[in-house]
């Protein structure tokens, strides 16, 4: 839940300090450092398979980097080991400040759409079932799946699942919302609707968003910070206007959909 009083206001939401992660001899993240201020909307671009999802997973401690620090509101998540009971408790306390939209939704198959979105509310809030009902209905209406409340995830299209997963990610008004490719699989109208919703949540609740995207229109519309990851390195990162103005070759290639450029198709 948004609780701006719990840490000093100027502590950044997220700081990555020289983070590296390899799987076997395949280096996925190679010394990535960045700072995301609270209340900002950061969009991370990058070709498939460069480690954007790995980066998000490091933020919530689902993966531990081999090197570097991952500070969330000043606390180093990378130093916590989920297998140890004391660390797990700390980690869970930090994770409660996150909402996460997984790349493929990760909705619970054996729960209805309604129960999926209600799940974090029932676990982590004291809301009455009545209040939960209203809130879930509101969230589902905002993402345009109100009519599917009682359906199961297997009965939905990919785009609908994604929107339900977004509704679940923002269910308990987290401080930081991580969105792994929210717009892929959505039609342009739905995608624009989702962008509006992100902007509105940002404006009204002050949520911080970290969004992974391939959609350059989306990046231009919502981002106040833009980063680009390619070949394990952060090739550019900074305020959106600045990054657009500097026009890094990799970003340029991405935006113009060119096949020739620094991004190698291997």
């Amino acid at each position: 839940m948004a609780d701006p009083t719990s840490t000093p206001d100027d502590t950044p939401a997220v700081v990555l300090d020289n983070v590296s992660k390899s799987f076997g001899d395949h280096t996925v993240l190679d010394g990535v450092s960045l700072t995301i201020q609270r209340g900002s909307i950061a969009v991370m671009l990058g070709p498939s398979g460069t480690g954007k999802s790995v980066l998000l997973r490091c933020l919530v401690g689902l993966l531990q980097p081999d090197r570097g620090r991952v500070l969330v509101f000043g606390e180093d998540v990378a130093a916590l080991d989920e297998k140890r009971a004391a660390d797990r408790k700390r980690l869970f306390a930090i994770r409660r400040r996150f909402g996460m939209l997984f790349q493929d939704g990760a909705l619970f198959d054996d729960m209805t759409v309604f129960d999926n979105v209600a799940f974090p509310m029932r676990l982590h809030t004291q809301l009455s079932e009545q209040a939960i009902h209203e809130k879930v209905s509101d969230r589902l209406a905002r993402v345009g799946v109100a009519h599917a409340e009682q359906k199961f995830p297997s009965e939905l299209s990919g785009g609908m699942r994604k929107r339900v997963a977004f509704a679940r990610a923002i269910a308990i008004d987290p401080d930081i919302v991580l969105c792994d490719e929210p717009s892929s699989g959505l039609d342009p109208v739905m995608s624009a609707t989702l962008d509006e919703l992100i902007l509105e949540l940002h404006r009204t609740l002050g949520m911080t968003f970290i969004i992974i995207s391939h959609d350059t229109a989306e990046a231009r519309k919502v981002a106040d910070t833009i980063g680009m990851l390619a070949n394990g390195k952060l090739v550019t990162f900074g305020p959106a206007e600045q990054v657009f103005a500097e026009n890094h070759p990799a970003l340029e290639q991405f935006f113009t959909r060119a096949t020739v450029g620094p991004i190698k198709v291997v």
Binding site: R95, M100, L123
Partner: peptide
């Protein structure tokens, strides 16, 4: 196993559910 390969176990963990 299905929950695990489909990322639902991770989703639980991110929602602070062991």
């Amino acid at each position: 196993g299905t929950m695990k390969v489909r990322g639902q176990i991770d989703a639980l963990a991110v929602m602070s559910v062991d």
